[in-house]
Amino acid sequence: MQRGFKKMKKSIQKITETSTSVQPHCVFVENMQDDEKQPLYILPERLSSLMYQTGFSKDEIRRLYRAFKQYCPRGAITTNDLKPAYAKLFPLGDSGKYAQIVFNAFDKDRNGIISFGDLLNEIALIINGDIDQKLSWIFRFYDLNGDGYITRKEMLVVISAIYEMLHNGQIIQRIVNRHVDKVFEKMDIDKDGVISQEEFMNSCKNV
């Protein structure tokens, strides 16, 4: 379970290796889910405010903003932006399904776009959050429908996507099933067929 999270964290850290300065102006984006294609203007938050909210340094925010503008010049991330980025990071496999899962985890309001502020806040939790914040984020990542429980089907979807991304699309279903079985054997304490957030966090802390 931690493997996919570490891969995602590593990919985020790669993005921060580029550098530039934050430009204090409005950027224009098009809401791709709006049937009428109405324009949407997003004003990037002030640098000092972002530093306070996320715990990132001025230089780290500038690097992330440079990468954000490079990949998303319209001012927001869509799945069409994220999937090619993951394809470059993991060229040997098919990262499309995993990229979609990552996008859904960041797109909390389900409007089909991720602003720079949204992105930065989520990255801050992944990299700078305390243990409870990080574990809560990982739990939500696997809880695909957001009902507060991880089902076997949800975990199979995520683990299968990880194997597709890392192993050239060749999923060995028996290995995936065994992986999920081991996780549920350890974390499903009350054996009700689902993993609650409390079970998840307690199990991770007791490793």
Rank of each mutant, 00 (worst) to 15 (best):
Q2T: 15
R3P: 00
K6C: 13
K7Y: 15
K7T: 13
M8K: 11
K9Q: 12
K14Q: 11
T16V: 05
E17T: 12
E17L: 13
T20Y: 08
V22Y: 00
Q23W: 11
V27K: 11
E30P: 00
Q33I: 14
E36I: 04
P44V: 03
L50D: 02
L50I: 04
M51V: 14
D59V: 06
R62E: 15
R63I: 00
L64N: 00
R66W: 06
R66Y: 10
K69H: 12
G75A: 01
I77W: 08
T79S: 09
D81Q: 10
P84S: 08
L89I: 07
L89Q: 14
F90W: 08
Q100V: 11
F106L: 13
F106R: 12
D109P: 00
R110T: 02
R110H: 11
N111W: 06
F116L: 01
D118Y: 04
L119C: 10
L119N: 09
L120A: 02
N121Q: 09
E122M: 04
A124C: 01
L125W: 03
I126W: 00
I131S: 09
Q133H: 02
L135M: 09
S136W: 05
R140M: 08
R140D: 15
L144H: 04
D147I: 11
Y149H: 13
E154Q: 12
E154Y: 02
M155F: 08
M155S: 02
S160V: 10
A161T: 02
M165K: 06
H167Q: 09
N168Y: 06
Q173T: 10
R174E: 12
V176E: 00
R178H: 15
R178I: 04
E185S: 11
M187T: 07
D188C: 04
D190G: 02
K191P: 05
D192V: 03
Q197C: 09
F200L: 03
F200S: 04
S203M: 01
S203H: 04
V207Y: 10
